[in-house]
Nucleic acid binder design. Structure first.
Lengths: 139, 139
DNA sequence: ATCGCTGCAAAAGATTTGCACTACC
DNA sequence: GGTAGTGCAAATCTTTTGCAGCGAT
């Protein structure tokens, strides 16, 4: 597992910005220094770094758009292995004050809490592959 | 703006499940009752319903994968208009107890708070189009 | 010489769009 | 008859994969 020029620059690019860039944006940045890098190397490297836990993705899953008809009770439990997602409600969370640090960044309209972990099923099975959401149980 | 058979069934499908389905999954469900519906109608209808605020998407944005090298301070401010996203930290949020309702769904490893709202720039401009993240400022 | 890494090009997957057809007021 | 909604097929966009060449051990 080598620290190549490309890999170093790709990591540097993500590490040095505050903007949570997507792959395309990382590519633009890296190309200023390494004009020959290709988008697929960026993807490969980003997921590699994520596997090594050197970076994370914003959303814990690699996802397509998902929809939700529950307009209340806006907190979610998400299984980081299989994508199982359910709403939950909590008194305590409903009344959280908006943190000052968040307010500095803009006008906050709502706080959404995401509880990440393993659903019951995955917690008992524990394998190690990164799974995709087709395995999610549906009700 | 009509309530067609398809639209009613698509809404019903999302409203009746707890699983936050993606478009493909909605299609499967609706097809049991309306075999002729097509995937593009499902998409069109889902986004229509979202525009009407009858349903929501799980993530506030229509997004591609985004990456993050900050492994601490895991809370995010997200501008629902332009996608501007920044970390923020907060003492209070770090010590939140894990809600019992979440614990029922699985083994919770961490709570992530997302503060949704309008960034400073969007808060001053206020237009009404759904925007995409290319407009995000990058630093 | 081998093995992993890269770039290219093509493939795959997800979502959107153009267009002609249908249904309804 | 006109307008909005649908289905189909093709287009687009994002991400992944196969493969051949390259570079470092």
């Amino acid at each position: 597992l080598k620290v190549t020029h490309q890999r170093a620059e790709i990591f540097r690019e993500v590490a040095q910005t505050l903007s949570h860039p997507d792959a395309e944006t990382v590519l633009e940045g890296v190309r200023r220094r390494v004009p020959s890098v290709s988008l697929d190397t960026v993807y490969r490297t980003l997921w590699l770094l994520a596997d090594l836990d050197l970076i994370r993705t914003l959303s814990p899953l690699r996802e397509r758009a998902r929809f939700d008809a529950n307009l209340e009770g806006h907190h979610h439990f998400v299984c980081v292995r299989c994508g199982f997602t359910r709403d939950f409600e909590s008194e305590g969370l409903g009344t959280l004050p908006i943190p000052a640090a968040a307010r500095k960044l803009g006008r906050v309209q709502a706080l959404h809490v995401e509880a990440r972990g393993l659903c019951r099923k995955c917690a008992s099975q524990r394998k190690s592959t990164r799974t995709h959401r087709k395995e999610e149980e549906k009700r």
